[in-house]
Simulated scan of single mutants.
Amino acid sequence: MVKKLLLLMLIVCFHNQNFAQSEYQFPNGYTVLNIEPAKTDSRIKEANTPHLVVYNQAAEQGKLLLFLPGTNGIATRGPKSLFSVAVHQGYQVINLSYINTPAVAQICKGKNLEKNSKCTSDFRTMRIYGTNDFPLIEDQAHDAIVNRLTKLLIYLSEEDKNGHWEKYLENGKLKWSEIAVSGQSQGGGMAAFIAKEHLVARVIDFSGGWDYSAKKKIAGWYSNESVTPSNLWYGTYHVTEPMAKVIDASYKAMQIPEDHIYPFSLPVPEGKKGHSNGVRNIGYADQWIELLGKGN
């Protein structure tokens, strides 16, 4: 309890769970940068709202926490309280701006799913890597999550020497072992998909899974062998979410250890949704610390 109170004093001065995240101010001393994707790669035209970059120059700088927003998510809007906890835990944080509409659940359904049982994995491959032909969305190769993150880190390495961003790159490519991947909803699914194929420092999936391969059958990629070992996997959902049972089933298919699955249950403020409560409700600060571990 003492640890929690001290942490709350650090990150939420005059702040509570009903306070608008967009108005939240990071603690004094934190470096906060808003960088438009087009500044890092002139080919990028779509989803050009700024990336959010946060770290504490005075602290030992450790792993990078990559956060991927959900559908319609705007990177500069947070969840900022969660990011403050992450910085406190020794991470440097990037909330990445990427094309997040339409969502996979909006495309890979009905006839599209009937024609292609691997629709969701093909969709995510295009949005993450931009390396395949998937005509159901208009994303270009340079719009892909991996390109956006790589170009942002190259830009930061040149323009923000204090951040030492080059340590997350190796020969111009992402050094996944130094990057913890996380995200909300669609973004959580993207983080999980990445962790299946790369050895990442950690993966935290916030309410991110209800991909299907057929009606009422969860997608096959959830059961694919994971390069990232199971002890580094974490998943959360709120018990009031309409898709809670499906999300839980996806976590079990991904072999996330039972004690690494967090079914959140704090009351959801009136007018808000349980689906996003896990990344917004400061009442989960202790759980966030467990999910994040130490970044340095």
Rank of each mutant, 00 (worst) to 15 (best):
K3E: 11
L6H: 04
L7Q: 07
M9Q: 05
L10P: 01
C13V: 14
F14Y: 15
N18G: 03
Q21H: 09
S22N: 11
Y24G: 00
Q25E: 10
N28D: 14
Y30G: 04
V32E: 01
L33W: 05
N34H: 06
I35V: 15
E36M: 07
E36V: 10
P37D: 01
A38M: 07
T40Y: 08
R43Q: 13
E46T: 09
P50F: 03
Y55M: 05
E60Y: 13
L64F: 06
L66N: 01
F67Y: 11
L68D: 02
L68T: 01
P69Y: 03
T71P: 14
N72T: 14
P79F: 00
K80A: 00
K80S: 00
L82T: 00
S84R: 06
V85H: 00
Q89V: 04
G90L: 12
Y91A: 05
N95S: 11
L96G: 06
A103T: 13
V104S: 09
Q106K: 12
G110T: 09
G110W: 04
L113A: 10
K115N: 11
K115E: 10
C119I: 00
T120V: 04
D122I: 13
D122G: 03
F123K: 05
R124A: 08
R124M: 14
T125N: 14
R127V: 11
R127F: 05
N132C: 14
F134A: 01
P135N: 12
L136I: 02
I137N: 12
E138R: 12
D139C: 04
H142L: 07
I145N: 09
R148D: 07
L149R: 07
K151P: 02
L152D: 05
S157L: 05
S157Y: 01
E158A: 15
N162H: 11
N162S: 15
G163V: 06
H164D: 09
W165M: 10
K167N: 11
K167L: 08
G172M: 08
L174R: 11
K175G: 09
S177A: 06
E178I: 06
A180P: 15
V181R: 06
S185Q: 13
S185E: 12
S185D: 07
G189P: 11
A192S: 14
F193A: 10
A195K: 02
L199F: 04
I204A: 03
D205H: 08
G209S: 07
W210E: 15
D211I: 00
D211A: 12
S213Q: 03
A214N: 06
K215W: 14
K216N: 10
K217M: 09
K217A: 04
I218W: 00
I218S: 10
A219V: 06
G220H: 09
S223T: 14
S223K: 13
V227C: 07
N231F: 15
V246I: 06
A249V: 08
S250G: 13
S250K: 11
A253Q: 09
Q255C: 08
F264G: 14
L266C: 02
P267A: 12
V268N: 01
G271I: 04
K272T: 06
K273F: 00
K273N: 13
H275V: 05
R280P: 02
N281G: 03
N281D: 09
I282P: 10
D286A: 11
